[in-house]
Design a protein around this nucleic acid. Sequence first.
DNA 1: ACCTGAACACCGTTCAAGT
DNA 2: ACCTGAACACCGTTCAAGT
Lengths: 221, 221
Amino acid sequence: MWRMARPRKPLLSRDRIVEAAGALVDTEGLGAVSTRRLAAALGVSGPSLYNHFRTKDEILDAVADAVSARVDLSMFEPGAGRDWRSALHDWAHSYRDALSDHPNIVPVLARGPGRRPAGLRVADAVFGAMTEAGWPPAQATRIGALMRYFILGSAVGSFAGGFVDDEAAYDPSDYPHLGQAHLLAERRREVDEGAFETGLAALLDGLALQHEALTGPATGG
Amino acid sequence: MWRMARPRKPLLSRDRIVEAAGALVDTEGLGAVSTRRLAAALGVSGPSLYNHFRTKDEILDAVADAVSARVDLSMFEPGAGRDWRSALHDWAHSYRDALSDHPNIVPVLARGPGRRPAGLRVADAVFGAMTEAGWPPAQATRIGALMRYFILGSAVGSFAGGFVDDEAAYDPSDYPHLGQAHLLAERRREVDEGAFETGLAALLDGLALQHEALTGPATGG
DNA sequence: ACCTGAACACCGTTCAAGT
DNA sequence: ACCTGAACACCGTTCAAGT
């Protein structure tokens, strides 16, 4: 038997692993991802993954970062000529859209950017755009944080989907105002999107009041 | 050997299990809770727990509900004579305080109230108070949802704590605006509380604008 | 009624061995 | 360099057996 000239093409790569892990997370949930199942989906044995990632957690981090990378940041570019408020509005929607395409990975994303490049790029863009718009650094940090709270909170658990679809679960003597709550689950998307838009508008309206107080009222110089 | 008159006092109860599980979640995190470890802390063997709960998930649900039960709802009582805005403000703080005392259980709480009594009582109180304050039902639902997004988002993952405490992680050529980001971790509480208060104030200011539009401007009848 | 040990079908990760 | 099988120390849950 002749010797191989070189080890033939590797069966695995970081990208292939991340892609397969993402698909598994999306279709079966975070809890369904085990190193053995993921490896099987890739046609290899479990321990092979450890040649490319140090831990299973690092794989999930990479999946989360791939989702962060899909968030549109173009509205924050200096050349875009956007005011801070409308940029924040569009970015929040883009962020929420990215997360709602892959809701199962949100708990991993909630751990924060850490050392994930795409997560850090998001934080960098928001902070940069807010300071550029005249917000003091401490306020720019707070805006990045509070927007993250709201967007992540809306993605980590659906409001409407958190209620069971069973009228008997809402005894009127215990919960006098929840007589219609059993209808929430089937209007899930509508309810959650309405709440997100209402909350986002309120948040931006409230911040605009603060920004006016900062730069002086529009009519008062 | 004489027969026991009756099976002697049970070693376990639902309350004891929930208490021990809560302590384990608080001190070692959600991931550290296994049925075997929890049983050992209670001085019994793993399968014993299944005489009191159907699954491990039900135990964690009960722990989450115990946290929900600590949220103050008195500001929503009709007799309290509170306006919707200040009631919402105080409730949000009480909710956040309860969660920040037990951050590790937040992912479970994020699954929604489901059939958890304390979770349902919270939803009932908020919805009831908002409709009472003149908000149309659809808006009252949205307010319950968006407040939950914000509070849960602030609890599920610290903003400041999501950044690593390592200046070298923020290469200025990659992240031009994150030069100070390594300082966030050590100011974690201050940053997160400031962002929460700023965001909450903005949210309530924004909602107040909507409420005025609803009832007519204060000076215009 | 309530607790037990044994068992089943899983986990994440390490490691020596192969090519 | 990269993949493998075997092994270690775990999991959640079921079940027959004990009292």
